[in-house]
Amino acid sequence: MFSYRIDFWVQFFVSIAVEIAIAYFLWSSIYSTEGASRISGYSLSMMILYYVFAAFGGRLVRGNERMIIATDIYDGGLTKYLLYPVRYVYVIGAFALAFDTVTLLQMAIGLSTMFAVFGLPAGFEFHWMNMLMGTTACFMASILYFIIYVALDFVAFWVDTVWGLSMMFRFSIQFLSGFFLPLELFPKPLQRAIYYTPFPYIGAEPIKMFLGRSSWPQWVHANMMVMLWIIPMAGLMQLLWWRGVKNYSGVGI
């Protein structure tokens, strides 16, 4: 994980800083064009802060999305994990956990630097409890996201390229989770429909916790919903593994 020092810092600055910069320029222009001080309850500074937490929280939840499972299936990298006395999904899970640990470190460095340089945005009060609620909710959400991601990559057992399918699903999940836009900006009926899915608990809800817009009962509710969704998704993932590994031909050896 720490083998590539340049990659560590480039990943951090490029992906996070660019995401936040885009949000800043876009929303500044929208607020000034509209002449509005608030949109769906968000002031400009709170809107930018939403994207700051979406960028950091998103990295924590989504982890390393480099399709390593599909690649392992396509180039035969899975073979060694079939030989080792360990479950493949646990190995990938350990990699994801290592990635999340690094992200947490980056998040702490990034947020403290940002708050030290720019100060706290107007209307935002920093509370350790909110950070704890947001981080734990992100961690729970990352388990659910991980299971969905693994299940999607297991499709590679049947199809020769899973990239298009995976990108489509990931884009949809991120859109419906509120990583691209706060869910409050969506039409009300769509918002209601989205809350029947696990997606708001992956993005929008943890972000609201960071922003101090959630209470402990909402934290409990969000985590319960994530756990409820983890059970069927884990079942689906396991089923895809059992069926898929029979199709594996161990190419490359």
Partner: peptide, 14 residues
């Protein structure tokens, strides 16, 4: 079984 078996592949790094 897997604790008692090894496969060495000249063409594939493990």
């Amino acid at each position: 079984l897997r604790r008692q078996v090894a496969l060495i592949m000249g063409q594939k790094a493990q």
